[in-house]
Design a protein around this nucleic acid. Structure first.
Lengths: 254, 254
DNA sequence: TGCAACGTTGCGTATTTTGCAGCGCTGGTT
DNA sequence: AACCAGCGCTGCAAAATACGCAACGTTGCA
């Protein structure tokens, strides 16, 4: 493994919390100043960090550009964007678009709630597959072997008292999700946050992404959230069709 | 300088063009496979890249998260966002929000044109200070010494036949921008693209960012673009006030 | 079944990074 | 004005590290 690279990446991660000076970084990372300095220089050469006039370091433009390009490469994101915008505008709740990456989900787009109570999530954040509606949606349609492999790599720990931690119980839950075509999360991932999610399908019929709506229980009750399911399914259906999916008879019957 | 870190950063940059396999990366970077492999492993450990089931490497979630955090740290971006959205919706042209970083400008937000002719720019992209309306705006209000320092570090090469490459002529242009309160770019940065820009000011009255509108000459003539100046100044004025700026008498007289 | 392409590993060498000690600058204090 | 403290930065020698080689395992294709 490359130790110096790992240090440099940790520098970037620390800078994600905000700008920092050379020895703030050094003390926080417990690396000698001179080492940090040289890593920062290389990072700055490639525009991954920037040093301002007060000798403080910031995350650099290259990071923003790479992220922008990487997000654009997920074609589902651009296809979904206008539909998600309209959907979010209609009901005003925090809406996420997620993909399965390894044994975790990654938020690849986020639309903010219209409330002043905002969620701490953001694009690029990773989340567990077992305690989120998006995770359930992304796993439900996987071949059993593939799902098993994902679960092998996943951390199935309890995030709240409601989290499903038993593997068999979780597989039952996946069957339910597959059956009804959408997933719920009743304060399983975060206390006081309920969530519903539905799949976006590609041309081959496989699930390529998940759209989920997260609502604090103080803002709406679980029952009120469930009322959104039809419009959620409508929007994921539209996105799926835009993405090349053609409904089968079986799907129609649902 | 840290050679291995530089290689790793180049790997990320190459991955910005799209997913790649191990030895696509190795041949493209002219680095031995084994080296690339180990760097990729470290990058993957920190979630800067992700390896899919087909052993292809993609940009990772951590990159997206850092970018999202870094962009959020620019408070001007969140303040400007709603106003830029409304502004963009009203006239439908590509709109950028930029900051001065070193001797270049960096796009920290972008709103797409409503036309199908889109621009190749993106958030995080860097651009020259001397040939862009945003660059002129960001330099115009700098103290002469600071502006000189920026220009010392800048590449003042000709980007089109119209680019101002003479330093004194450019300083004259800056005086004009300062005088009229906004800047133009008449195919100085890209052929067939005209641009206007205006400053966003902070509480201290200093210019903290620039809003610019870019329009291909096939979509609108230069004169038509100029007609947008009043509404551009209106939106930058609003953003500036939201950002804590209080107009002085001098500013009112303009 | 054989071949080819690709990803992967172990190991010795040598390049790199590292930490130390010290220098110079800047900004604040008496 | 002069001093001090804090911080960024450099040269050098030691040592840890990454590197490249050669070879192996696996997968997919002819």
């Amino acid at each position: 493994m490359s130790a110096s690279l790992a240090k440099a990446l940790r520098i970037l991660t620390v800078l994600g919390d905000g700008p920092a000076s050379l020895d703030e970084l050094a003390t926080q990372l417990e690396v000698h100043k001179t080492t940090v300095l040289r890593l920062l220089r290389t990072l700055a050469d490639e525009h991954f960090v920037h040093r301002d006039a007060q000798h403080r370091y910031h995350l650099g433009a290259q990071l923003f550009e790479l992220s922008s390009r990487g997000l654009d490469q997920r074609e589902v994101r651009s296809i979904a964007a206008p539909h998600l915008l309209a959907f979010n505008r209609a009901h005003g709740h925090t809406t996420h678009l997620s993909e399965l990456v390894g044994s975790e989900i990654v938020y690849i787009d986020k639309l903010e709630s219209h409330d002043h109570v905002r969620m701490a999530s953001r694009v690029g954040l990773r989340g567990p597959v077992h305690s989120t509606a998006a995770g359930k949606v992304l796993l439900a349609d996987l071949p059993p072997a593939a799902a098993a492999q994902v679960l092998d790599g996943a951390d199935l720990s309890a995030r709240t008292p409601n989290t499903i931690i038993d593997r068999d119980a979780y597989l039952d839950e996946l069957a339910r999700v597959r059956e009804q075509g959408w997933a719920q999360d009743r304060e399983e991932n975060e206390p006081s946050i309920n969530c519903i999610g539905a799949p976006v399908r590609g041309a081959a019929g496989t699930v390529v992404a998940a759209v989920s709506v997260s609502v604090p229980s103080i803002v709406a009750t679980y029952d009120q959230l469930i009322e959104l399911v039809p419009s959620l399914l409508a929007v994921t259906g539209t996105i799926s069709r835009d993405h090349g999916w053609r409904p089968t008879r079986e799907d129609h019957s649902r």
